[in-house]
């Protein structure tokens, strides 16, 4: 799969990612009641083994929110926050003193799932506007564990066909602190073809 990609394909995804991240920043600002600044997202192909390094190493604790996407171009989305940043997000969300939130309790988990939902929805809205395709996210699932373990699911899905994975890394700035969110779009087989065909940059 990776070999069929050109710079042009990556650029198109970057543009989709840009607008998606813009939507996400707006949605996140509404949710948190805070001004959110956003950096231009980095879109990259990474070798499987380097993805966890990007998240602070394979043993670094992270929160991952997974959503299955129903569509003519079905996909899976994984949104990952390093654990301390997930806690920071919850502190802001619930207006608590810094460092007092727990992502593992019922409320923390459902709140983070909602954040993942909103971020995924923002990207999907952008992707939908570009392609005219419909994307319907299913109920999210969440895991808090070692980065390597949380990523396995996504990497396994990619790994059946490729040794590299597509990652959109977005950096938000809230209350003077960086919040990194890592966003993986994992198309099912043939879904990418459908997406690029709809974008007018089909494969040869």
């Amino acid at each position: 799969m990776g070999q069929e990609w050109s710079e042009m394909h990556l650029d198109v995804l970057k543009e989709v990612g840009n607008i998606g991240a813009g939507n996400a920043a707006t949605a996140l600002a509404d949710l948190l009641g805070q001004q959110i600044n956003m950096q231009v997202p980095a879109v990259m192909w990474l070798p499987l083994d380097e993805v966890a390094t990007r998240l602070g190493g394979p043993e670094n604790p992270v929160a991952g929110i997974l959503l299955d996407i129903d569509s003519q171009a079905p996909a899976t989305i994984l949104v990952v926050f390093p654990l301390e940043q997930a806690c920071f997000l919850l502190d802001i969300l619930f207006d608590r003193p810094q460092g007092s939130s727990n992502v593992m309790d019922e409320i923390g988990m459902s709140a983070l799932k909602e954040v993942g939902n909103i971020l995924a929805g923002s990207y999907l809205t952008s992707l939908s506007a570009f392609t005219g395709l419909t994307f319907v996210p299913m109920v999210p699932a969440m895991a808090v564990d070692m980065a390597g373990a949380v990523l396995d699911y996504v990497l396994a899905e990619f790994g059946q066909v490729a040794d590299q994975v597509l990652l959109i890394e977005t950096e938000f700035l809230a209350l003077g602190r960086d919040i990194y969110s890592y966003f993986f779009l994992v198309p099912k087989p043939d879904a990418l073809k459908a997406i690029f065909a709809a974008l007018g940059v089909g494969f040869e």
């Binding site: 499987l48 083994d49 190493g57 394979p58 564990d145 390597g148 373990a149 990523l151 396995d152 790994g159």
Partner: peptide, 23 residues
């Protein structure tokens, strides 16, 4: 030992692989 990787060693070396989920 990285993801989708393997290695062989003999005493007294230790072999480690980190962050297994479904792997």
């Amino acid at each position: 030992v990285g993801m989708a990787d393997l290695a062989v060693a003999s005493s007294p070396m230790k072999l480690v692989t980190i962050g297994l989920g479904s792997c």
